[in-house]
Simulated scan of single mutants.
Amino acid sequence: MTRRCTRRGFIATGVASAVSLAGCVADAREPPVDIRGAMYLPSRAMNSFQMWHTYERGVTQRDMGFAARLNLNALRTWLSYEAWHKDQDSFGRAVDHLLRTAESHGIRVMLGIFEGVGRPPVPKNLYDTDPWTGTSVWSPGKRVMRNPDRWGRPTQFAKWVMDRYGDDERVLAIEVMNEPGWRPWKKRFAREMFRVVRDVRGSVPLTVGATSLANVADYYDWGIDIAQFHYNYPNTQDIYRGVLEQAKKLQRSAGMPVWLTEWQRIADFGWGQQNVPPAKRGPQYASLVPPIRESGVGNFFWSLMLKPAYMLSQRKRGILNGVFHEDGSVWSMEDARAIKSMSGDSSFSGRQRKEWPEWAQKAKRRA
């Protein structure tokens, strides 16, 4: 794909203004249209550092098999600057194994380089595996992102990723950063890292994880090849249909794919209410599959594996995400069949178990 950055940009969507761009050309493979994906972190990894620092090949092989049972063709996951910094060779072998295993199941992977969501990557947060206190972490930390004099090492990491995976057919896209959001210091860091990656780019399309459709316009003039947005908890299907229609308009006007890279369920689980049954705050992907399937928008649900919510604030409210228990049973047969139906096949057999993972329950009893 050759995308000239002087095209019309973000117009006629009602969610973003037109962007005036200098003439530039970004070359990348044409991203596929049919994307049926999931966010992936192993069940017991509270952040991406834990996923890579204690990488378990058997867990990856098992979990890729679960993804194949849903007819998924894509996964989204994040790398870890901190794990790379600790042991580059071990980290590289782990990433290669995940990509090789995913490919054996017909799955391509979107790799994220940096993470803008979470808490400081201090040892306490990096290593805490308790499902009630462990947390997602910024990668790199705030002190690094705010100080350009400390960007040298993250730049080396970004170049290492591009040198190793920038032309890898197994890689669906490279997400330079997840949710730089609205804070100026995060956006400055993310923009510079995107420039670094773009200057050494290969054929793999480049993207940035946007918090919303409105946020996407901030990244268009950076030279992205794929626009992505997140919308996890709408109040109704009609609201979701409206947003997905805006995404399709944006796709037409910007001339690039627009993917919904985080979605979960209708938000009817009673935020702030007392005595809400645990099952009520569990997954309910079937509530959003109809509008997503109708739209045809490429999408990734959060998440493949059943686990306490990624965000600590949501976890404390009892929110659970995911489809598969570690033993291969599912939280909801309705959810599994609905997700698989986006491939044109809604058949799914297995065992349903609407229970919190035992390892998480034990940790809660100890707390």
Rank of each mutant, 00 (worst) to 15 (best):
N299P: 12
V25Y: 12
R252H: 09
Q156W: 05
G9D: 03
W222M: 14
G37N: 08
M256H: 06
W138P: 05
R315W: 00
I113C: 12
Q352G: 05
Y81K: 03
V171S: 02
R195S: 13
M64F: 14
L72H: 00
S104K: 11
V161R: 00
A26R: 11
F348P: 02
W185A: 14
D167G: 11
S303Q: 15
P290T: 01
A267K: 03
T261F: 06
R188Y: 01
S43K: 06
N299F: 04
R8G: 11
T77G: 11
A338Q: 01
R293I: 00
N47L: 12
E179P: 07
T6D: 10
R198C: 06
P180N: 10
W359E: 12
K142N: 15
A254S: 15
A254L: 15
D327A: 04
V276I: 09
G37Q: 12
A279Q: 14
F301M: 09
T207L: 14
G58M: 03
Q156I: 12
T211C: 13
W151C: 15
L288D: 01
I11A: 07
P42F: 11
A363R: 06
Y165V: 10
R69M: 10
L213K: 02
T133A: 01
V15P: 14
V95I: 05
S90A: 07
A38D: 06
A22Y: 02
D168P: 04
F301V: 08
G328H: 11
L79C: 11
N299V: 04
I107W: 06
K86N: 03
R188H: 02
R146N: 07
K249N: 13
M46W: 02
G318N: 06
G322P: 15
D168C: 01
G112S: 07
G14L: 14
P184I: 00
E355G: 08
P42T: 11
M256V: 14
A22S: 09
F189W: 07
G92H: 13
D199L: 10
Q156V: 05
P277C: 07
P120D: 09
D221Y: 02
N275L: 09
M177G: 10
A173S: 07
S349M: 03
I339N: 06
V109G: 07
Q361K: 11
W84I: 07
G328Y: 14
G202T: 12
L312Y: 01
T207V: 12
R93Y: 03
Y55H: 10
L304C: 11
T211G: 13
C5G: 14
I11G: 02
V196H: 09
Y231K: 13
R57S: 11
V137T: 11
S341E: 06
G282W: 14
E334N: 02
M193I: 08
E179Y: 03
F301T: 02
P278W: 14
G318S: 07
A286W: 00
F300E: 01
P140E: 10
G344M: 05
Q264D: 01
V258H: 00
F91D: 01
Q251E: 15
T6I: 02
D27K: 14
G166D: 07
L250Y: 09
G92A: 12
G14W: 08
V330E: 09
I113A: 15
S303E: 15
V59I: 13
G116T: 01
G282R: 09
V117T: 08
S346P: 13
D128E: 13
A360P: 03
A309L: 07
R198H: 01
R108Y: 04
